[in-house]
């Protein structure tokens, strides 16, 4: 009986000897899978360079079968800017970062790469805390969120979360800014569409493109995987609404 493979392991996914790269229910794997699919669908496997920072996102440098660079915590924006300028428009330069990597320690590279309208694409996986180090307060932790460094919940004295997509979308040099999530199969497809559009802006040399992806972190949120999906819908999305915040074909 004939059969056809429909979905599953993307072509660009590398099977590595490490047993489990992510905690149960962590959607970082989903995000990296989407990235593999998008690069493949654009036919850019051999012309892409992936730059990753430090955090759970670092695993992308091991899992995606394209040329990759792992760099200092927060610095993919700088490294990618330089690589793009040296390699030229035919090579797609993508940064894969966490929320701390992009908006805390990496705020300077991110904001300035966006302001210079560098022709690169940044994907920021936002899990509202520092996953690798054990669940500390992140610039994207929501108000009231309990973390190991805000044990009584995030209060105004900790400051307020940074809405990365809206913030970057307000910069003149940015061509595309959007926020997606993987809370449902429909959202999975929508987020993939955002990712594809962002890379399209780079392909068309429009300017800096940015996609934020909300992701679960059940281990550090101390929830079951199913509960953490619900938490994204109930607690994160109201403070981090999904959608496109900027989409232009020319920077003016």
């Amino acid at each position: 009986m004939e059969e056809k493979w429909i979905a599953g392991t993307p072509k660009l996914w590398r099977d590595i000897p490490l047993i489990i790269p992510f905690c149960p229910g962590c959607q970082h794997g989903t995000a990296i899978k989407a990235l593999c699919e998008v690069i493949d669908e654009l036919g850019m496997e051999n012309n892409s360079v992936l730059v990753v920072g430090v955090g759970c996102n670092t695993m992308a440098s091991v899992l995606v079968n394209v040329d990759s660079v792992m760099v200092a915590h927060g610095r993919p924006g700088d490294v990618a800017s330089a690589m793009k300028r040296v390699l030229g428009k035919d090579t797609m330069v993508i940064t894969w970062q966490g929320d701390g990597d992009t908006l805390a320690i990496g705020c300077e590279p991110t904001v300035h790469a966006a302001a210079r309208s560098e022709n690169i694409t940044t994907f920021m996986v936002n899990n509202a805390n520092y996953g690798t180090t054990g669940g500390q307060l992140a610039p994207t932790s929501v108000m009231g969120q309990v973390t190991t460094t805000s044990p009584l919940g995030r209060t105004p004295s900790h400051g307020y979360p940074i809405q990365g997509s809206e913030f970057l979308g307000s910069l003149r040099g940015v061509a595309y800014s959007a926020r997606g999530a993987f809370t449902s199969p429909a959202n999975y497809q929508k987020t993939k569409k955002y990712m594809k559009r962002a890379l399209g802006k780079q392909k068309d040399c429009v300017g800096y493109s940015f996609v934020e992806i909300l992701s679960t972190c059940p281990a550090n949120w101390h929830m079951s995987p199913i509960e953490s999906l619900k938490w994204i819908e109930e607690e994160m999305i109201p403070q981090f609404p999904l959608g496109e915040f900027k989409n232009v074909d020319k920077i003016e």
């Binding site: 004939e2 056809k4 429909i6 962590c26 959607q27 794997g29 989903t30 993987f182 999975y188």
Partner: peptide, 16 residues
């Protein structure tokens, strides 16, 4: 398969 975070599911469709 879309929602599986660990890429542990392969989906096949019967052609006939």
């Amino acid at each position: 398969a879309w929602m599986c975070p660990h890429v542990a599911i392969e989906v096949y469709e019967y052609l006939e």
